[in-house]
């Protein structure tokens, strides 16, 4: 059985995102890991993807336009001042 068939860099890169999410079959994972063991470029790519995903996870608060925030706060305050009157 040809389970040791090697993959190209193009194939390896296509697997990286699923690899990080644990979404690969064990066969695909093994193929990728074999490729990575010999390929510095794809290893760098994997590491960069890891850093990218980790950085995305630290983006929480975003700057909001004041008019959006103030408009919503206005609705909030009116509602809490008189829940029946607020429309």
């Amino acid at each position: 059985m040809a389970i040791t068939k090697s993959i190209t860099c193009r194939d390896a890169v296509a697997l990286v995102s699923d690899y990080l999410d644990g979404g690969l079959t064990w066969r695909a994972r093994r193929r990728l890991e074999r490729h990575l063991a010999d390929c510095g470029a794809c290893t760098a790519y994997l590491e960069q993807m890891r850093v990218t995903v980790a950085t995305a996870g630290t983006l929480t608060e975003d700057d909001l336009p004041d008019d959006v925030l103030n408009g919503l706060l206005d609705v909030f305050q009116k509602f809490h001042a008189d829940p029946n009157a607020a429309s």
Partner: peptide, 11 residues
């Protein structure tokens, strides 16, 4: 299927 310009390690 090889990199034309490999990503540079930026760790």
């Amino acid at each position: 299927g090889m990199w034309r310009e490999p990503p540079q390690p930026f760790t």
